[in-house]
Write a protein that binds this DNA or RNA. Structure first.
Lengths: 221, 221
DNA sequence: ATCTTCCTTACGGCATACCGTACTGCTCCA
DNA sequence: TGGAGCAGTACGGTATGCCGTAAGGAAGAT
């Protein structure tokens, strides 16, 4: 079983429960932090001291407060950590259950386990830790199909950028100008209209407002 | 100090931490449930048995699953409970920190305390319980000004309904027809345009898409 | 090299949204 | 009772969005 685990979640209530689970699995050393930057520093220090952590359990969304952060979100922390410490196992523990988010983290092995906070969250987290200990990955049941399904995979980065600009109040004309400036192709008004039309059909949206509202609900933007 | 407390939160990790806090305050009987309907039933049974709860601590948002629920959200549970058991103290414990939500629950005394889950959530909850025990209300520091500020109070139910319909893909024409059918006034296209214009100015939005995206981010719809 | 196909772009018609103005009816108050 | 102020409505002009059609250009196929 793991010897040294770092828990990173901004909510104290969550950290509390996670620490109990880790302890009940016989993990001796459990450290908890409430900021991603603190997590990174703890990992770094432990590695330099020759006594590195072997598991990181982290949330994705962290509330912003007065403290400026290099890593304001769990996603960013994970990518930085994965690069610096490839041997560290990483488990995500979050309420976020959009397949898009799961794919973004699990497809390229940024994370090794993805556990959704829910009614059985701690039970699943316990399973996840045991799986990771056996060098297996883990996905919560409700998002276990995330990596198989092809659905909604046809929305690419360009589409996301386009939808984000619309959500920020750009007119189609302004989006076109913006894409021209940024040398993003296609950039013509006509192409933007066409792409939006494709997205509207794909999501069965009545109009642009509806479309943006839907993709916000889906967590795509 | 309270004798009998009911905790209602769908996340097991949260319930765990809250129970610890309640126990540390010397509360003898602490019961926890993960569904609002269960909460209501427990309260009802205890009251009928002549041994009622004296404090309810509940989340607002509960994930939906296979179980059909009479009270799918904490808001609905609270309103039902307040009516049935006016003497029961009610504390909200939630991540939701929009002033709009705080006002909706605290202004008419539906809830007696409103605590935001955060880095110091459990500490604040502890304070809240002690305050309630002294018949005082409690608000987390970050939303303590909710009941004083007048800002954003000008968004009423009509505005919310209008924005929701837009987010669901209705054209302004269709919104007008819908309001006429529902006998909601004003219903003319002209008035709807006017109201939207007011909201756009108020939120500094460039257009309707922007506006809907913003109010979704703010949690108003 | 020519053809096919797909993607990008351009344009025109129509629908909807946006905005200013003006009329109506109501309430409040002198 | 008459006028000010406000909310709701109506209407017209301009801008933007939506949709179909078609022209230009790049990449691959024969």
């Amino acid at each position: 079983m793991f010897k040294k685990v770092l828990i990173s979640d901004d909510l104290d209530s969550i950290n509390h429960g996670v620490m109990t689970v880790a302890a009940s699995l016989g993990i001796k050393e459990v450290v908890q932090v409430q900021y991603c930057d603190d997590a990174y520093l703890k990992l770094k220090k432990a590695a330099m001291d020759g006594d590195p952590f072997d598991l990181l359990i982290t949330d994705l969304s962290f509330k912003l407060d007065h403290r400026d952060q290099t890593y304001p979100s769990g996603d960013l922390l994970i990518k930085a950590v994965r690069e610096a410490y490839p041997n560290l196992q990483i488990a995500v523990y979050t309420v976020e259950d959009r397949l898009q988010r799961v794919r973004a983290l699990m497809q390229d092995r940024y994370a090794d386990a993805y556990v959704c906070k829910g009614r059985k969250g701690l039970v699943e987290l316990s399973h996840a830790i045991r799986a990771l200990d056996k060098q297996e990955s883990y996905l919560s049941p409700q998002i276990a199909h995330a990596l198989n399904d092809k659905e909604a995979l046809e929305v690419d980065d360009y589409d996301i950028a386009l939808l984000q600009l619309l959500a920020r109040g750009f007119s189609q004309d302004e989006v076109s100008a913006h894409f021209k400036n940024s040398h993003i192709s296609p950039s013509s008004l006509s192409s933007i209209e066409k792409r939006l039309n494709k997205l509207r059909i794909q999501f069965k949206a009545n109009n642009a407002i509806h479309l943006v509202a839907m993709v916000k609900d889906l967590g795509l933007i």
